[in-house]
């Protein structure tokens, strides 16, 4: 079999520069999962229909399956693990847990990443704006209600902490 040509890739993943040799066909999703061990980025459909693989690419939520890895060369990628950790949880993660917004959890990584993208841009979204922002992220378990509530609660908490700091 003809071996595909590979190209060097440099990515800043969750604040850390990573390198890999990748083929042109490889998507950012594939490289994140198979080469960089970032399996928190999920594959649900492989073609942009479900949002399970959402990551922040230079701050914007995108489907990692609809981005070639080489197209992200030199850019910043943030995954769920880059948003918060058990030691330093992000309010979104806390509210998703607390509000029961996580059932099977397979959509959660993409949901939380997308919600982060929203709150970075719009700290005070209405329920409608939240619904719209996550309308590229499918969830089969929750019916979305608790997810929207969790994002609302996290937004509120983030605004409060911001005000406290002032």
């Amino acid at each position: 079999m003809k071996v595909s040509k590979t190209y060097p890739l440099k990515l800043n993943v969750n604040g850390e520069w990573k390198k890999a040799e990748v083929t042109p066909r490889e998507t950012l999703l594939h490289v994140m999962r198979e080469r960089l061990s970032h399996t928190e980025v999920k594959e649900g459909c492989g073609k942009g229909d479900c949002g399970a693989c959402a990551v922040l690419l230079d701050g914007k939520p995108v489907n990692a399956c609809l981005t070639l890895a080489l197209q992200a060369d030199g850019q910043r990628v943030v995954t769920l693990k880059g948003i918060g950790t058990p030691d330093k949880p992000h309010p979104l993660q806390e509210s998703f847990i607390k509000k029961g917004a996580i059932q099977c959890g397979f959509c959660s990584a993409g949901m939380i990443v997308t919600a982060k993208g929203l709150l970075d841009k719009n700290p005070k979204p209405s329920r409608e704006e939240i619904g719209k922002a996550i309308s590229g992220n499918l969830c089969r378990c929750t019916g979305y209600k608790k997810i929207i509530e969790a994002i609302e609660e996290a937004a509120l908490k983030l605004r409060r902490t911001k005000n406290d700091r002032r």
Binding site: G48, T114, S135
Partner: peptide
């Protein structure tokens, strides 16, 4: 068009 994630690309 499509969905918000797609619109960003």
């Amino acid at each position: 068009l499509g969905n918000p994630l797609v619109r960003n690309r």
